[in-house]
Nucleic acid binder design. Structure first.
Lengths: 217, 217, 217, 217
DNA sequence: TATGAATGAGTCTTCATTCAT
DNA sequence: AATGAATGAAGACTCATTCAT
């Protein structure tokens, strides 16, 4: 979380490392976007953080947007895809939902996802392609998955008769708050003791609420 | 310089302008920030929306940041202060919490608050003063209020023994999702039927969950 | 022909002159393009020559290409359009052609036309829109006009039976040489005594040649 | 580093490379300059066309300008020198002039010369040395040659009494149009049927005109 | 009070050139 | 001899801000 300027002791003007560069750059970009947002982070900021010059970035990424997209793909799309497969057919609804929570909160508590989510949330309107992708691939697919599970649970009688869509979005909201609260506004003394355990407490409340629900669709 | 408004004969009607001008500007600014975010919205955009020229904005606001600050003050700070007073001492915890929800969701479903919240969330780091304010005055004060209520409810036995902080944050999360989801990502068929009724469904789940809670601090 | 830097004694940071600016800028642009060509002339060059800053140019012209197009329109298209009207129907072919020569050589000996022609000739490939415009509006329309006259002259027997297209292009070539030779390469002692009288001598040769022609279509 | 060419068994065949490399590069450069002009053609373009990397170019040419100079030297300077020798003393003026036309139009219709001529014409000001050379060695020497021939023809009575300089430049203009018109602006239906035959038609007109000339110096 | 012409620092991006390997 | 990663100095264009009017 500390910005580590890797130029510090560069003995040579440059150093051959085709392999490492793109990673260094995307790491730097993530930090820069986290600190300033997409629009306000400059290529110069990113380069400085990566310990290189602006021009070098363009050897590996077509432009700023491409660099941002690469981050989204690397940290979100690919990871999400890896985790969810065939889960919506699971019969044990409660444990499937719990698994869902586990996976998503593992991801959402990742610094990378938090940062990207925050940036996208705020600046998506300026980058329709990214917004579209995030909306469809991330939000909708999660929502669909959880909604399907809740509906099945309701049908089975395992869960109360909640409106599945409302409940699904409540689950996601639980994750999203992290995105908003995580490291931005703990300027005062409020510092969330432990995000993970807090999430678990909240999850319990929701599951409890769903189980006991008298709320009809 | 203005041709007199033909609807009425009130003499020197345009003196009203002096007061109206800053309001027109901040209305325009809100729209511009909503459409493009803070960084991407230009003073020219704002001026155009307000039907004036760039220079005029600087007669009423020191600079872009000042203009944004004014919006935050007008739409969030002042309104919040008006609504919550002496509420944390209320004895009827459940209805106090419900009132809380009502007030906050009234606010959060306001276009103005949504916009500002979103922008702050994303670009707060570029405006430490605003971030500080938003964190302390908005987030923390709400959190403190709800936490206090929940704690009293737990002590009274009116509510289950939830961790009051976790539950409080869950309540806020419910509101925050609105901020994030409102009009950005409805790309697919997901289009929140009715934000307010959805919120009520969710609120019911949470209250249910809290009531039934066996989750100990 | 001397580059006159109009900033010399600017007593104020800037000066209101909406009317004069665009002209000053296009004058400066013409000089810059003449000195360096389209690609190599920078907006900073142009601004400096105009005694203003880069940003100001963009108040009057959308971008570099727009600025160049404006020059072409102003100095070539509009002028050409003004001169030729109904000429291709003239019965006195010889004098029509002579008039043609007069008009075109008046224009072609203008510093502005020479510069623009030269730049377009060389860099048109990189700016297809400009090339298209110049090709169709300037070259083709002249060629068509002269060809028509020559054809009629041949039919009348007033002129020899030359291939009208070849001859038309020869006439234009006469003009084009000016474009290439005018002030670029007189680095040595060759300095065309007087372009206009030289052109007249050449025109006489061509007309002579056409009159006496045995060359059949 | 090269896999041996399978067509022959000649040992160490690639030693040929040492000589071939610069030629490959200049061929590539010519294509690149032809397509984009001097300024817009990049070293990367050239390298790609040559099938090598940018760095390699600098083993053979000091820089971009040097590479361009080499092209001019190779295609224009050397060839010109080879063709014209002792011709200005020829007694049969008409056929000498015709020979002149042949040689020059052979050269001018060469893709290489067209390209270089066009580039020089446009961007000469950025390369004073080249402009100087082109002006003195190419233009002036041709002009001098033709002028001398025409003057002698006039003195002999073989040709009419034209102004020899004007006529000489008219001859060159005929060639120059090719340089300008060749592949840039054939936008409409104008597409020079056959440049060579067109040139011959035009040449006939000029010679006709010179022969019949009553135009006195 | 309002204008709008002008500024100039700053942004993304390109590209000739260098140089360790 | 050849590579190709890296540089850094531009270049076109934008925009918050100023200020004479």
């Amino acid at each position: 979380m500390e910005i580590e300027n890797s130029t510090s002791a560069s003995p040579r003007k440059w150093h051959r490392r085709k392999q490492a560069r793109p990673d260094e750059i995307s790491k730097a970009a993530l930090i820069a976007f986290a600190q300033k947002g997409y629009a306000a982070a400059t290529m110069a900021d990113i380069a400085k953080l990566a310990g290189i010059t602006k021009g070098t970035i363009y050897l590996y990424f077509k432009n700023k947007e491409d660099l941002f997209n690469a981050l989204v793909r690397e940290h979100i799309v690919d990871r999400l895809a890896a985790h969810f497969s065939g889960m919506e057919n699971s019969e044990d609804v409660i444990s499937a939902i719990n698994h869902c929570f586990d996976v998503v909160s593992d991801m959402a508590l990742t610094e990378e996802v938090l940062v990207l989510g925050r940036v996208i949330t705020a600046e998506a309107r300026n980058f329709p392609a990214i917004a579209q992708f995030w909306g469809a691939e991330v939000i909708d697919s999660l929502l669909d998955l959880v909604t399907a599970l809740l509906r099945r649970g309701g049908a089975q009688g395992t869960l109360g008769a909640v409106n599945p869509e409302a409940a699904a979005r409540l689950c996601l909201a639980l994750v999203l708050q992290e995105l908003i609260w995580h490291p931005s506004f703990n300027v005062g003394d409020r510092e969330h003791s432990d995000p993970r355990s807090m999430m678990e407490l909240q999850r319990a409340i929701i599951i409890q609420g769903i189980r006991a629900a008298q709320v009809f669709v």
